[in-house]
Design a protein around this nucleic acid. Structure first.
Ligand SMILES: [Zn+2]
Ligand SMILES: [Zn+2]
Ligand SMILES: [Zn+2]
Ligand SMILES: [Zn+2]
Lengths: 162, 162
DNA sequence: TGATGTTATGTTATAGAATAACATTTGTTA
DNA sequence: TAACAAATGTTATTCTATAACATAACATCA
């Protein structure tokens, strides 16, 4: 996959805003955004594409920090619980939530070519799914809506599958 | 999880119909539904709940058949390619397709308590997703719509989480 | 302050899911 | 039958995630 971003660059504006937002939300809730958790969130936001847990772990180790899989999975669990990130089940990766504050399951467009992800919040989709489940007497706990395809940018270019 | 079915019972009517349907479709397409592939499909249909690849492998070994992970994954790949089964990304399990013949991504209601799955085919959902992706110039290759919750049967009972 | 309980992190080991690579067998076709 | 292609057997490895227990950091109260 042609990666659209890298991790070495300084935190982007997006990342900085996301971190500030996370700080505020956690403060509000009395949740502890520790150094480790903040750093994991920063790593996620510093990438243009969603990251797997082990990739995040590699970055932590590059930081000089000690760590093992539970280190990163626990941080991810916290961030998921706070609604600060989403997990993309189809790829086993994690991405920053563009609209934290209101917990939601999210709807994602995932580009097969560049790996970038758009997060939708189409209420009509939620409503339609809700109507369908209501009609069947099914109680919804979580929704997964992930669409794999090719983004406009990648469609412009001549197709080249790596 | 309270499993709603087991694998020991004889193939159900559903399973028999699904197998007959699969035979016909493969015949039509010149695809080879070999003993192994047919048996894997039968195992999947013989369970009231979706199965993981390694569970299927266990059953194959109980059959006295030799096998390793690639054995079952290759059969699953074939069945997926033929549109005879679906993979549920949120659970890493496989379930028989209720409407084979027309390839589709499917929409699933997954009960957290009993594990049973309903496959929807709501064209309105597809259309809405299509409208959203069209508006963004995003080319769709595959859709994942999985809803985790509690089915009507399990809602009737007093909540008991194992 | 120090004792105590709670939360977070460190650490080791293991479980679970999927694929790579190559050998062998089976089926098809010339 | 020879030659080729498709399917399966086999071994090893990679990737993802969690169990279990030890230690450290933080909060609360006597
Ligand atoms: Zn979100
Ligand atoms: Zn793209
Ligand atoms: Zn289907
Ligand atoms: Zn149920």
């Amino acid at each position: 996959m042609r990666q659209a971003g890298d991790l070495s660059c300084a935190p982007s504006i997006d990342a900085q805003q996301a971190l500030a937002r996370a700080e505020a939300l956690c403060q509000q809730r009395g949740a502890r955004l520790t150094d480790l958790r903040r750093r994991v969130l920063e790593i996620i936001w510093s990438s243009a594409t969603p990251l797997g847990a082990y990739t995040i772990l590699d970055v932590l180790r590059d930081d000089g920090r000690q760590g093992a899989p539970p280190t990163v999975y626990r941080a991810l669990d916290f961030l998921l619980a706070q609604g600060l990130i989403h997990r993309l089940a189809s790829l086993n990766v994690f991405t920053g939530c563009r609209r934290p504050g209101s917990h939601h399951s999210g709807q994602f467009l995932i580009c097969r070519d560049c790996g970038r992800v758009s997060e939708l919040s189409n209420p009509a989709i939620d409503e339609l799914l809700r109507a369908e489940t209501d009609a069947r007497g099914f109680e919804v706990l979580a929704q997964i809506v992930e669409i794999l395809g090719r983004c406009p940018d990648c469609l412009e270019e001549p197709t080249r599958h790596d």
